[in-house]
């Protein structure tokens, strides 16, 4: 049983008149309540894969099976309805929201669009969602630009879980956060995963973070899969050149003793 199965996915762009493959014959699977990390240097195709998987971009070749059905075959209203099950959290929580919106509207949209709650019931659901992600329900009336970065990312997570998805794509979702906030957000994500059995496609360039939360890892280089496997095993002894380079480049704290 897999939630998302991607096979032989390819996407080409033209850069300076020459075609180049942003994503080249990539395959992977994610099971329920599993975290699959996509790692790689910038330009390796991680974000493109995320956008292909979400049908924000259309692939040139390949198949995407989501919850056992051909995801690429969907269009229009059927696709929009299916999107309830496949959500995303962006890197920059400020850019991810309409700058004019308030928190309540951000959370109201998915509930309204997918008919999850009636108009009168929605304020209660919004309050519950905010509390689920560790925010005060009173935050609902605040404008998005008034709240802190960490709070915004929690709102983004609340929006993503509003439609009870089976998979959330986390595109560098903790990279822009302060380290102290980052830990809390990762804890929240893991907690949600345990409770709701949500699978994550966790995109990051930071192997330390990946090692902390991911079950399996796919390391990409120039649009291709360089290596994949159990996250801790791969990070402990990478086989590919790019894997070795990523591990070597990750900053280490040379602490003599751990307090």
């Amino acid at each position: 049983m897999t939630v998302l199965a991607v096979s032989n996915l390819s996407k080409r762009y033209r850069r300076g008149g020459k075609p180049f493959a942003a994503v080249d014959d990539v395959s992977f699977e994610i099971g329920p309540a599993e975290t699959l990390a996509l790692a790689g240097p910038s330009g390796s195709g991680k974000s493109t894969i995320a956008r292909l998987a979400l049908r924000l971009l259309e692939p040139d070749a390949g198949r995407i099976q989501f919850e056992g059905a051909d995801f690429l075959a969907l269009s229009g209203a059927a696709l929009r309805a299916r999107r309830a099950r496949l959500q995303m959290v962006f890197q920059d929580p400020l850019a991810a929201f309409n700058p004019r919106s308030i928190v309540a509207r951000v959370l109201d949209d998915p509930l309204r669009i997918h008919g999850i709650a009636s108009r009168s019931e929605r304020p209660r659901r919004i309050a519950a969602l905010l509390e689920r992600v560790g925010l005060d329900a009173g935050l609902a009336a605040r404008a998005i630009h008034e709240i802190s970065g960490g709070q915004r990312q929690r709102v983004a997570i609340a929006r993503a879980i509003a439609t009870r998805p089976s998979l959330i794509v986390l595109d560098e979702a903790v990279s822009a956060l302060d380290v102290s906030v980052r830990g809390q957000i990762l804890e929240l994500l893991l907690d949600l995963q345990r409770q709701e059995r949500i699978a994550y496609l966790f995109i990051s360039h930071d192997l330390g973070v990946i090692r902390a939360v991911a079950h399996r890892i796919v390391i990409l280089d120039a649009g291709r899969v360089a290596e994949s496997g159990d996250a801790r095993t791969v990070i402990a002894s990478p086989q590919s050149a790019i894997g070795k380079a990523l591990v070597a480049a990750t900053p280490r704290l040379n602490r003599i003793k751990t307090p």
Partner: peptide, 18 residues
């Protein structure tokens, strides 16, 4: 808060694993 390659994975701390 630093998540290095030697840190204890959060997954284990929570006692949840796949």
């Amino acid at each position: 808060a630093h998540l290095g390659l030697d840190a204890k994975p959060l997954l284990d701390r929570q006692g949840a694993s796949a």
